[in-house]
Design a protein around this nucleic acid. Sequence first.
DNA 1: TACCCTGTAGAAAGCGCTTTCTATGCACTG
DNA 2: CAGTGCATAGAAAGCGCTTTCTACAGGGTA
Lengths: 354, 354
Amino acid sequence: MTVTLADVAAHARVSPATVSRVLNGNYPVAAATRERVLRAVSELDYVVNGPASALAAATSDLVGILVNDIADPFFGIMAGAAQAHLNTPSDASAPIRTNAERLAVVCNTGGSPARELTYLTLLQRQRAAAVILTGGAIEDAEHSAAVAAKLARLAEAGTRIVLCGRPALGGAEFVHATLSFDNRAGARRLTGHLLSLGHRRIGYVAGPAERTTTRHRLEGHREALAAAGAADDPALVLHGSYDRASGRAAAARLLSAAPDLTAIVAANDTIALGVCAEARERGLRIPEDLSVAGFDDLPSATDAVPALTTVRLPLYEAGARAGALAAGAGAAGHVEVVPAELVVRGSTGVVRAG
Amino acid sequence: MTVTLADVAAHARVSPATVSRVLNGNYPVAAATRERVLRAVSELDYVVNGPASALAAATSDLVGILVNDIADPFFGIMAGAAQAHLNTPSDASAPIRTNAERLAVVCNTGGSPARELTYLTLLQRQRAAAVILTGGAIEDAEHSAAVAAKLARLAEAGTRIVLCGRPALGGAEFVHATLSFDNRAGARRLTGHLLSLGHRRIGYVAGPAERTTTRHRLEGHREALAAAGAADDPALVLHGSYDRASGRAAAARLLSAAPDLTAIVAANDTIALGVCAEARERGLRIPEDLSVAGFDDLPSATDAVPALTTVRLPLYEAGARAGALAAGAGAAGHVEVVPAELVVRGSTGVVRAG
DNA sequence: TACCCTGTAGAAAGCGCTTTCTATGCACTG
DNA sequence: CAGTGCATAGAAAGCGCTTTCTACAGGGTA
């Protein structure tokens, strides 16, 4: 039914071994022979049997990218960049297999710890070449331990582990590379910026409490307040999910409870957009009546009116780098902190007199 | 090094065949034996070797979901829904493999024809159980033929092909199921709504010219104009990409060239948001001075201020259904047109007097 | 001329599973 | 008590590749 390597060998009048060698290009084959084999491959329209080759070679070309929410551009950008750097289309149709021919796939955990583990098992089953974990981790001792154990087993079986935008796993030498975002410093700078504009009553719309990203950003915010000697009123901090609706709802509660707020910092741009929507609804001008700031610098931050002051995270670059690392670049054990840069735009301004 | 099925068999003092049967649950095994095997599995922390099992059984549990742009919620929602319905976490940790244990992965083509083909080859190589193609197709005879040929070969090898939000492939009986969006009717209704509000000078910001989705929506728009006997001025139609920046730029051109416009229809919600931004920038009130409408009914359409009048596409439901179909549900050759429903919100209003 | 090295290709042994075919025990039935 | 059938488990033959080991030319070198 389907064409096998043996068929190609017969067609080219060589042994299966030779065909394999031509296809993998890891052994000298005479030019004339190679030529004959390649012709047979294209004439028969042969496609390697992945499972068979993975079994025999004990390696696979599958790379899994785990994301929390596939519908969120934050993850989409990173995943897309990683994918682009893991797989180069130009080589795709060629019969010779190259390093660029990896099947990079994204797995959507939806933020569920159980699904995260499921996908890890599924990838382990496929003997994946690498796994990239993106975004904040869940802060639950049991789950963290389970993930760490799973990753250790994966690494043991030869799977490269790369963390992208995730805090480093303490003492986990099986992690090939870690790119963690400097969320804390970014948040500190952002709130520092607001303080320097004269704001003192600043609301904060945080993400889900159990995520590391949420905690780090909030801590940075608090550190900035403390450094400036500003009051840190717990009532001005509200937790929610990382989406627009949550931002809008939180803004509504914040603005009702504390009408004296002059600024609201959101844990990410999407939340910030929700905050802006609520402010507009209440007739508050941005930034004259209320300054609003986000985090991540997603495309929508630039497009908003007014454009959002935010903290730029080089998501594309980080994703691309994670892809390269997953492909084997860099020395094992590499840990890198990706800087978070303050980007001041129109949504923040000096606090209004009085 | 890694635990194999033979190790489990030895540990449980049974034959490898028995272990395989317990794990696959497709053959009667005495309760006591099964019990012993399962204990061995968990004691040794055994994980099936996917490639080996795929090779032996000539099937795999890989399902590929091809999307045009992973950073676009339009695709993210469909892909997430499909993924959720292809893989149930509750069964994941259990040693017994169930139907729900598929590795559903999304592949980002980035709209590139070459990458689309690449991914198809990669999935063919893995002997994927199913492939879901989402979103509009590219209208290029050569590429369409290449894709159709590829799909035919995949189907021949046992891969189920499902189209989601894609026009049916003419005469392609190898497609397991097709869910196509009724873009034309949706667009017709949307423009009809605007016409009924008295609008006659309506701008249209279309997507990339070479995509089926773009063409169908534009055709629906024109059909509505024709049906109402309204003029169809080609100068009022601008093509661009499906993103916010493109919408904003197009709106700028449209509003400058034709200040008498009373409404702008965008090919999707993201473009519409860009149009709104530009209108706001120019001091035009929505909908008093300008009505704006989108398409898709993404979450951001609801959250916009004012909320966007749009055409609702049941993306989640369609994605979920595509997942089920890819999992084997439904009879082969199933073709279904997913209705597109007009959703009137605040961004459209009666044309202003004078 | 004898020898060895280098370049190239084939033979064959798995990789870790699944599955058919076969074997065994045991409970029935007549 | 022999005969039949069912329930359960093992043996073994692959699935389609990769890769080590081996083989054989032909061309230097001594």
